[in-house]
Design a protein around this nucleic acid. Structure first.
Lengths: 128, 128
DNA sequence: CCGGAAAGATTACGAGCGTAGTCTAAAATG
DNA sequence: CATTTTAGACTACGCTCGTAATCTTTCCGG
């Protein structure tokens, strides 16, 4: 299997974000897109892109004089990695303390409650 | 209010862990406790303790020749900070995508399901 | 064909982190 | 009292990250 992508940093994830929305893209377009949501220097964004390439989180396909970049790490994989990491680091690897924590310390919006119900319904269906 | 404690690192949280379980404690005991769960050098652990002190995450009360250390940042505060950070960084600040993610990509144990039910029940009671 | 622009590669640099080692002051011990 | 031990303070060092600047190669326009 493709060896696991090393963890990507906060800043790097902002670059991934634009690739997750649209890929492949040339670096120029990536820079432009990232700059629409940040005030980072072009050089900074290119550096991050290069690091992501080095980590294997994105691919670069030569297209004439330049490259077209695409995500290798999917958003779902990344979300899983990060969630798993939080769970392990902070909640002893178990989901229930996380849920308990939210129920006690964070207010839940209507949407969250709806999502919870859906989740539980899905589980109950599967259980039987 | 007491100015917010800066984020604590992974290694530092392992030291907090032993203080959350029992406090106050002298550094010697902290070192011993941490070493029961890791192979870190005594010096390393003392450094981490010092950094935590610098960050204001723990307090030190003089007790004769040495200090007794106690957590200032509570485990709940820390869990909140970390959860909030994950939510904001990875899930656009909303809980429902996190939940959806778990329901789709992680298997839930019996305990998790029970916790979910409890959570939902508590919400429903509050709603009416 | 030549000089400038543009894309990528390389280098930079301070802060925080993981991981200690050294220095100092004070206390305990012989 | 002189010496050893020890708790804590200070220093260190390589790595990643955020944030770029500089160098190099290559193509495009005149």
């Amino acid at each position: 299997m493709p060896n696991p992508v090393p963890a990507i940093s906060e800043a790097e994830s902002r670059v991934m974000e634009v690739l997750w929305r649209k890929a492949p893209q040339a670096s120029e377009d990536i820079v432009a897109a990232v700059q629409r949501e940040s005030d980072w220097h072009e050089k900074t964004i290119r550096t991050l892109l290069g690091r992501l390439l080095g980590k294997g989180a994105v691919s670069a396909d030569k297209d004439g004089r330049r490259y077209l970049y695409a995500p290798v790490l999917t958003r779902e994989q990344w979300q899983s990695q990060e969630s798993r990491s939080l769970l392990d680091r902070v909640f002893g690897g178990k989901l229930s303390p996380l849920l308990a924590h939210f129920s006690e310390h964070e207010k839940l919006g209507a949407k969250d409650v709806a999502e919870l119900r859906k989740l539980l319904a899905a589980i109950e269906k599967k259980e039987r």
